[in-house]
Design a protein around this nucleic acid. Structure first.
Lengths: 207, 207
DNA sequence: AATGAATGTGAGTATCCTCTTCATATTCTC
DNA sequence: GAGAATATGAAGAGGATACTCACATTCATT
């Protein structure tokens, strides 16, 4: 027992009970992610989301008290996904290249449905007052996983945190860029991204 | 003689002739870059730009026929700047590390005034019909400079283009991320970014 | 079959911004 | 001082937007 917080359930106006409404809520969140990724925060309107979900605008407001609560739900779902990917890749003790391959494969998978969602969520979409904490906590755990990997393959204890930051943002940059060009699936790109990660972490000291 | 195109001068309603109006136009573009970087495309309104520039909205429309023409001017100015930086760094034959250091220093310089302008320009801001060409040409020349550098330090002829893409988007990712956290000036970050570039280009083949 | 709860609907409201114009005022050049 | 260049900002016209509410439909349970 003790603290059993089991999903703060996001800020919702009412919990869906029947299968029908659960599906509705799900399709709203999914459509929201789609609209956000496709049109950016500027084009993200509740009416558009409802239409994209094939649902009346009224239904949306039945479950989400306002626009921000919806973004919040989208954000949570996406971040959970990404977090599980990176955590998975950094787990166990694997050879460097295998870690890099799994990381790349996972991140690409997490981005191939809604290519630019991640960046929009990070850069454009505003944060609910209460979500700032969750947001920060995500960032912290995200970096922590990277740091674990860095520490594992680089013996120098010194710049671990900075290296984690550099590595994560480099990977995100490449993936974001590839997503914009519909090149996420290109195998030579995936290969080169693996190379980049491996090269950085094996830390050549060549001139 | 021959082709002397000397600045297509952007789409403007009238050319500023006196020093006063030149300063006005300049401050409008500058304020526009500021607003765009600070508020994103969603918050980019002509009224806001005029106010930020300390200029009447009427003055803005004296020179720019519409909103898009203004974005166009901002885009051109920024891209010219970035292009000169990368071209400068890739010029001559320099040792790898020196190239990396100059590239990092230049890119950071180009981003430290309007930290997220670059990404906003690339990702959010729509393109005037006629600017698609200019935009593509910028991208091409941009990549070309990177490719030159890649070809110079990596002997393998094969994946030069892909490597250029990966390298450029990785660098952009790191800088964009650092900008969001006000960490552009952090020297250990700059150092690590140099390491990343050097490591990738020297191409260790470690396991 | 019936009843109440859960769910779904979408026209409508009220509000806020937006881009852009234009008639007028100020400042410069010569 | 004349005419051109430059600057002003109130106002028009229009379009979105977030969100509500009175009502219709479907479900679970008996």
């Amino acid at each position: 027992m003790s603290t059993r917080i089991a999903k703060p359930a996001a800020r919702m106006r009412k919990q869906p009970r029947q299968a029908r409404s659960i599906a509705t809520v799900e399709s709203i969140i999914e459509a929201g992610a789609h609209v956000l990724s496709e049109l950016g925060w500027a084009g993200f309107s509740t009416n558009k989301v409802a239409e994209a979900a094939g649902v009346s605008i009224g239904s949306l407001y039945q479950y989400f008290p306002d626009k921000l609560a919806l973004v919040e739900a989208i954000r949570r779902r996406h971040f959970d996904h990404v977090l599980s990917v990176i955590s998975q890749a950094a787990a166990d003790q694997k050879p460097l290249r295998q870690f890099a391959r799994e990381l790349v494969r996972g991140m690409i998978g997490a981005h191939s449905i809604h290519p630019t969602l991640h960046q929009v969520l990070l850069d454009e979409a505003p944060g609910d007052r209460g979500s700032r904490a969750a947001h920060a906590s995500f960032q912290a755990r995200y970096l922590e996983h990277y740091a674990t990997a860095v520490a594992q393959y680089r013996k120098r204890r010194k710049d671990t945190e900075t290296m984690a930051r550099v590595l994560s943002s480099a990977v995100e940059g490449v993936i974001h860029n590839a997503a914009r060009r519909n090149m996420l699936e290109a195998p030579e790109l995936q290969k080169q991204l693996v190379e980049l990660i491996a090269a950085y972490l094996s830390g050549s000291r060549a001139t």
